[in-house]
């Protein structure tokens, strides 16, 4: 049977290597969104990605782009070095919550504060995935993890950190939005946000970041369906969706 019309296909910016993510994990969806945006903007030939340490450490291989892996938390500094060396290329980091919101806070804060013209995709699933479900800086109060077995206690562990809100206070941040990908509608919204973030960089407007609330069924001990519901019911209360800074009005 001849194919008349292609209605859906794998984005060109993804490689043929199979994802290694767990069933129900949102990394795969976000990877696809990022790749589609890169394809649609026609920037694959000039895009370099900086993968993090964490479950998405393999992302540099899942994307069919020039890429590297940064040390844990250092992706914004690595991306800074690349961008300063090659200002006309598109540089993005892909980071998890342990990477960006814990060990790499200094690097992300100062990259944003410099208005570093890079894009960051921040996956927040409230837990350390790769190392086996330990407490993350974004773990919710009361949430049980392998290092908060009695539930996160604010007295001992402090509070879930809201990176998007925090970075939005910096003058160098041009666009920061928090989204999720639990429904087709949310996927479409997230894709629009990611596209805007890359456009911010293409226009040279400064730092852009999209935080995507994501699931970790394996470490949360839930089915994929349960974890989507848990994300919507619980995470969005601590991490409300929305645009936290937008300095692009009239420019994009």
């Amino acid at each position: 049977m001849a194919i008349d019309k292609i209605v859906a296909q794998m984005p060109k910016s993804l490689s043929k290597i199979e994802f290694s993510y767990c069933p129900g994990c949102h990394h795969g969806i976000v990877h696809r969104i990022v790749a589609e945006v890169i394809d649609e903007l026609g920037i694959a030939s000039k895009t370099i990605m900086v993968a993090p340490v964490g479950c998405s450490v393999f992302a540099y291989n899942f994307f069919d782009l020039d890429g590297t892996v940064a040390a844990h938390g250092r992706a914004p500094a690595v991306a800074t070095g690349m961008k300063r060396a090659l200002p006309d290329r598109v540089i993005f980091t892909y980071q998890g919550d342990g990477d960006l919101a814990s060990i790499g806070t200094a690097e992300i804060v100062h990259a944003a504060n410099r208005g570093e013209n890079i894009t960051t995709i921040f996956i927040n699933n409230a837990v350390y995935g790769m190392t086996g479900g330990q407490m993350a800086p974004t773990t919710l109060l009361g949430q049980k993890t392998t290092t908060s077995p009695y539930g996160r206690d604010a007295k001992a562990n402090g509070y879930p950190i809201r990176m998007s809100e925090m970075l939005a206070t910096l003058d160098g941040s041009a666009y920061i939005e928090r989204t999720m990908v639990t429904t087709p509608q949310n996927v479409i919204k997230t894709k629009a946000a990611v596209k805007k973030a890359f456009q911010v960089q293409l226009k040279g407007l400064g730092f852009s970041m999209i935080e995507v609330l994501s699931t970790c069924p394996t470490n949360w001990g839930m089915t994929p369906i349960e974890s989507m519901k848990w994300l919507e019911d619980n995470m969005t209360k601590t991490f409300p969706l929305g645009v936290f800074v937008d300095r692009t009005k009239g420019l994009i």
Binding site: A70, R74, A77, V78, G81, M82, A85, A106, H110
Partner: peptide, 26 residues
């Protein structure tokens, strides 16, 4: 050329990593 004062030596070396990835003299 490019001069950048980083926020720490930890950041410095990683900026160096990124810039060196592009094949430039850093």
């Amino acid at each position: 050329g490019t001069f950048l004062q980083s926020e720490s030596e930890v950041a410095t070396v990683n900026m160096l990593y990124g810039a060196a990835c592009t094949g430039r003299k850093v």
